[in-house]
Design a binder for these strands. Structure first.
Length: 304
DNA sequence: ATCCAGGATGTAT
DNA sequence: ATACATCATGGA
């Protein structure tokens, strides 16, 4: 086992681990005390978060188990390999959060959200797990979305031994494409089961590749992703924002539509595409997705 | 019991 | 393009 520490005061801006991994962006981390999404209380320096990371081009060649916790101004990690670059990638420690907040237009709602969850960053999830997570997210609560991804990994993902325990990687497109709709329904994916199976098949066979979106302009990238079954504009925006490095993407979910009605009524342009353009401009353009994620997390936890 | 959750799809207009 | 019903599941 390798281990180390990342000093957070060397970052550009603050960092808060709990809000970053428990704000409904990523469903790929597990809290070792098994209280993920069950409490908003501080982890008290005792709870670790862990995940199995697939190989990431330019970052890590091998699949890795990574375990991390925040203690004051440090991030402690344990892993099958050196996890500094992996954590920097997954948790966007390379973002200049100070500059991002400064570049976001000030308004009462955004001020409260940024204040309340200071240090929350976007995640940069591996794309296939992210895609499946948000296909599963349709009409579903965040704690249940997380449970679905855990069941998928436990049932169909590779087993990896680390520190005396067995971990499960998220299944590959091939591994999920081989499952039947009925098998996925047995994991309580409901009507999303065929969406996941067919999307996995599209990727496994080479019919389509979500990574092709990264070379496109934002709206073209969103259109590209909607070719996958179970992926409309909203899910596509989530994948662009939480995996494919499009921080301008603003997923128009139920919470943001409520925020638009209550705080930015002029941004309601009727349809998804034009409303998306309006709220994206309202939130400052380039990093509008950061503002969206703060507002989502803030409202979902009782803010107004 | 009834409602609702980070919506998408197929069909009709 | 837009409006509508329909799609599973489980917790409140």
């Amino acid at each position: 086992m390798e281990q180390g520490t990342i000093l957070l005061d060397e970052l550009d801006g603050a960092f808060d681990l709990q809000s970053t991994v428990e704000s409904g962006q990523s469903y790929l981390w597990d809290r070792t005390d098994d209280k993920m999404y069950t409490t908003t209380a501080a982890y008290g320096g005792t709870a670790w978060y862990e995940t199995v990371v697939p190989p990431i081009a330019g970052v890590s060649d091998e699949q890795a188990v990574v375990r991390v916790r925040q203690v004051d101004d440090a991030l402690q990690w344990e892993s099958t390999t050196d996890a500094v670059d992996i954590l920097t990638h997954l948790l966007r420690l390379d973002d200049d959060l100070t500059a991002i907040v400064a570049a976001t237009p000030a308004d009462p709602l955004l001020d409260r959200a940024f204040e309340q969850y200071s240090g929350m960053r976007l995640v940069r999830d591996p794309v296939f797990p992210c895609l499946v997570s948000f296909i599963c997210s349709a009409q579903m609560r965040v704690s249940r979305i997380h449970g679905m991804q855990r069941r998928l990994a436990r049932e169909y993902g590779d087993e990896i031994e680390f520190d005396g325990r067995t971990y499960h990687a998220f299944p590959t497109p091939c591994q999920l494409a081989e499952r039947t709709e009925a098998e996925l329904r047995d994991l309580s994916l409901g009507y999303r089961a065929p969406y996941v199976q067919r999307t996995a098949e599209m990727i496994a066979t080479g019919e389509a590749d979500p990574r092709e979106a990264v070379d496109l302009s934002y709206e073209s990238a969103r259109d590209h992703l909607t070719q996958f079954v179970g992926v409309g504009n909203k899910v596509a925006d989530c994948v662009l924002l939480f995996s494919l490095d499009f921080p301008e993407a603003v997923p128009l979910d139920t919470w943001i539509q409520t925020a638009i009605a209550d705080h930015y009524p002029d941004c309601d342009q009727g349809g998804y595409v034009s409303t998306s353009r309006a709220i994206r401009e309202q939130f400052g353009g380039t990093y509008a997705g950061y503002a969206q994620t703060y507002v989502f997390h803030y409202l979902r936890n009782g803010g107004n």
